[in-house]
């Protein structure tokens, strides 16, 4: 039962999705699903597999032409096509989606496109023709017991706060102090605390921005512990955005430093 908690939490959306796939059977349609965690994506696929037959196509960067080829076949015995998009929107995929969007409607089964947040943003900004041509779109947030809370529950720096207001107040104070702080180490502390606040708010893009600033400073002053801290935080942010290769890259950087310098052992759990 534990495994199904996620699906139950979004059962209303899943119900709508089922209806939408059902009503689109036998004709083309584009349904976009944003889900960052592969585990949760599989849960959704398991749910769909009990109701529909589908063919799954994993798309890698550089395989834009494969999308076009597949859609041009215009033959299938399945109820739906499931496309698992890569972490990044590459130009070839952008072109395939934007310029050959009609093919999705000419295909005799609906296309369900699974992508992460970064890919979805790529669609909106770089493939707007495809975006406006789509059917419904679903933003599935990972259920509470999934990746993100685990990440920040075990994050070593912990700030105590009463509520959202308290956190906002703290962020504003930190921003003010940042403007007047002269000591780089002090600045790093403030930036990392703000990155933690952004993590709690789920604003991962901002978290990356702040961590990158902190990273510049720690490199300048040669603070190894701070540097490893920044890498870990960047890894967490990218992981939550569904950009796993980048997350691994930063986790590995942090891990190397922890092993080499014997610092921040408490971060090992997160990594």
């Amino acid at each position: 039962m534990e495994k199904n908690i996620g699906i139950e939490e979004i059962s209303k959306d899943m119900n709508t999705l089922s209806i939408e796939v059902g009503v689109s059977k036998g004709r083309g349609n584009i349904i976009i699903i944003r889900v960052n965690s592969p585990y949760f994506r599989n849960e959704i696929l398991n749910f769909l597999s009990k109701r529909f037959t589908y063919e799954t196509i994993g798309v890698n960067e550089g395989e834009g032409n494969e999308i076009i080829k597949k859609l041009r076949q215009k033959e299938t015995k399945k109820d739906a096509l499931i496309w698992i998009m890569p972490e990044n929107m590459s130009t070839d995929i952008e072109n395939a989606l934007n310029n050959y969007r009609e093919l999705f409607y000419e295909y005799p089964a609906p296309s369900i496109i699974f992508c992460n947040e970064l890919f979805l943003q790529g669609i909106i900004m770089k493939a707007p023709d495809f975006w406006r041509y789509r059917g419904n779109f679903y933003i599935f947030k990972e259920p509470k017991r999934d990746a993100m809370p685990l990440a920040f529950e075990s994050l070593p720096i912990s700030i105590s706060f009463k509520d959202k207001k308290d956190l906002m107040r703290r962020k504003r104070i930190n921003e003010h102090l940042l403007r007047i702080a002269k000591d780089e180490k002090q600045k790093v502390g403030l930036l990392l605390e703000n990155s933690e606040i952004y993590l709690i708010f789920g604003n991962f893009k901002k978290m990356i921005e702040v961590c990158e600033k902190a990273l510049e400073s720690v490199k300048e002053i040669g603070d190894k512990s701070g540097e490893s801290e920044c890498y870990t935080s960047l890894g967490i942010a990218y992981r939550n955005l569904g950009h796993f290769s980048k997350a691994i890259e930063y986790y590995e950087k942090s891990l190397k430093m922890i092993q080499k310098w014997g610092i921040n052992q408490e971060n090992l759990q997160v990594i």
Partner: peptide
């Protein structure tokens, strides 16, 4: 186009 999508998406949502 956005309006057309809005009506369509809302219809499936209401049905659900």
């Amino acid at each position: 186009s956005e309006f057309i999508r809005l009506i369509s998406d809302s219809a499936i949502e209401a049905y659900g």
